[in-house]
Design a protein around this nucleic acid. Structure first.
Lengths: 164, 164
DNA sequence: CTAATTTCTCAACCTAACTTGAGATCAAGC
DNA sequence: GCTTGATCTCAAGTTAGGTTGAGAAATTAG
């Protein structure tokens, strides 16, 4: 059970293709927890190679680093994902991915239904529904196309075709 | 043909749901081009309501502001999109969306094929293919999981099961 | 032993799409 | 005329996921 010499950050960088700076950043985010050698340099477990690979795959599936942190913490003892862990986690991955695919398909279908409908001017346009937002940028616009519900009832004297 | 009084930035903000600051930002990006009144305040064409709506929809479909700028500039005379313009542009939107959906589906299918395969350790894992990246963040890791091709041939003395 | 690599820390920079704040001016209602 | 409220400019801040650079110390190669 003696703690082996461990591997250097440069080794992990070379093996994973990650930049050294990225690995340090991941440490800052709590995704890996190296110890230090006598000279103050980071030493990693060999298993961190798998851990970092897991991070890379999870990122590819659209998870944020905090979410990935959550996955890793959810493992018994915070261990590096094993084959069995991976089988369980990959289900979550697929659900996540399916949800994203569905959102995009709904958006596409609404677009199809909107071609030639004069769309951009209609309050009842399906693209109007804010809940269907792709929502990949947290701070995007809150409404899609004017006419908040209260607007129409409050403002009586507009010439209908004057707007938009 | 006299230039009408135009509408204020606050009016557009209220009608579109955009923040005033966002509309100013869009102006800085060249998406709208208001003129100024005597007091130096911005005045917009009513048609800019449709123009901004177009920007919002296009964003929802995953286009960047520079790309949207390109769409708007491509219109005859740089005009605000008409119904016919919209029909043409929406085809591009759909193509864009379909491409994104396909990428995600490929990723999901590769995941399905990988469950239980011990995946994260195999250089021939399908998730390894860098070209399949979701690529929504421009500066993600360049390789997925260690073992760059040259690595295996160069480094002769590794114990196979020692890695990852 | 010396030179060349690595690694260290820490702050600053990067992109995208905005927001926030300060301090000043403009426009509108009474 | 006066007081709100809207608008103005311009710089700086925000989030995510890192990168870059400076200057110093550790490690490795020969």
């Amino acid at each position: 059970m003696a703690k082996s010499a461990g591997v250097s950050i440069g080794y992990l960088a070379e093996r994973t293709g990650l930049a050294v700076s990225a690995i340090r950043y991941y440490e800052a985010q709590g995704l890996v927890e190296p110890w230090r050698n006598a000279g103050g340099q980071r030493r990693f477990h060999r298993a961190d190679l798998r851990r970092l690979s897991f991070v890379m795959v999870a990122q590819k599936f659209g998870f944020s680093l905090p979410e990935i942190h959550g996955f890793l913490k959810s493992l018994p003892g915070g261990r590096t994902p094993t084959k069995a862990d991976w089988a369980r986690l990959s289900e979550q991955f697929r659900d996540h991915l399916n949800a994203r695919i569905e959102t995009l398909e709904r958006l596409r279908d609404n677009l199809d239904g909107c071609i030639g409908c004069g769309c951009l001017s209609l309050p009842n346009c399906k693209l109007y529904n804010p809940d269907d937002a792709v929502a990949q940028n947290g701070q995007g616009p809150r409404y899609l196309m004017g006419d908040r519900p209260s607007d129409l009832t409050k403002d009586g004297n507009r010439t209908p075709n004057d707007d938009i």
